[in-house]
Amino acid sequence: MKTLLNVIWLIFSGLWIALGYALAGIICFILIVTIPFGIACFRIAGFALWPFGYRVTERHDAGAASGIGNIIWLIVAGIWLAIGHILAGISFCVTIIGIPFGLAHFKMVPVSLMPLGREIVPTAQAYPSYRWTGTY
Rank of each mutant, 00 (worst) to 15 (best):
I11N: 10
L10V: 03
V7K: 12
F37E: 00
V109Q: 06
I79D: 00
I86H: 13
T34C: 14
L81K: 06
G102I: 05
L31V: 11
G67K: 12
V109F: 08
W80N: 04
R131P: 00
I32Y: 08
L103R: 01
L49M: 15
I68Q: 00
W73R: 06
L103K: 01
G38H: 08
F42A: 12
V94H: 03
W132A: 14
I120H: 04
I90Q: 03
G20P: 12
F42V: 14
T95Q: 08
A65Y: 09
I35C: 09
A124I: 08
I96A: 13
I86M: 14
T3W: 13
T57D: 14
I8N: 08
Y130M: 13
R131C: 11
A24Y: 08
G98S: 09
L74K: 09
G78D: 06
A64D: 11
A45L: 03
F42R: 12
L4T: 13
A88E: 04
F101H: 00
R131M: 14
A64E: 14
R131F: 15
T135E: 14
W16Q: 07
P128V: 08
T34Q: 10
R118P: 05
I11L: 15
I120S: 04
W80V: 05
I97Q: 07
I79Q: 02
A40W: 01
W80Q: 04
V94P: 03
I17Y: 07
I83D: 01
I27P: 00
N70H: 13
G78H: 07
L31C: 11
H85A: 09
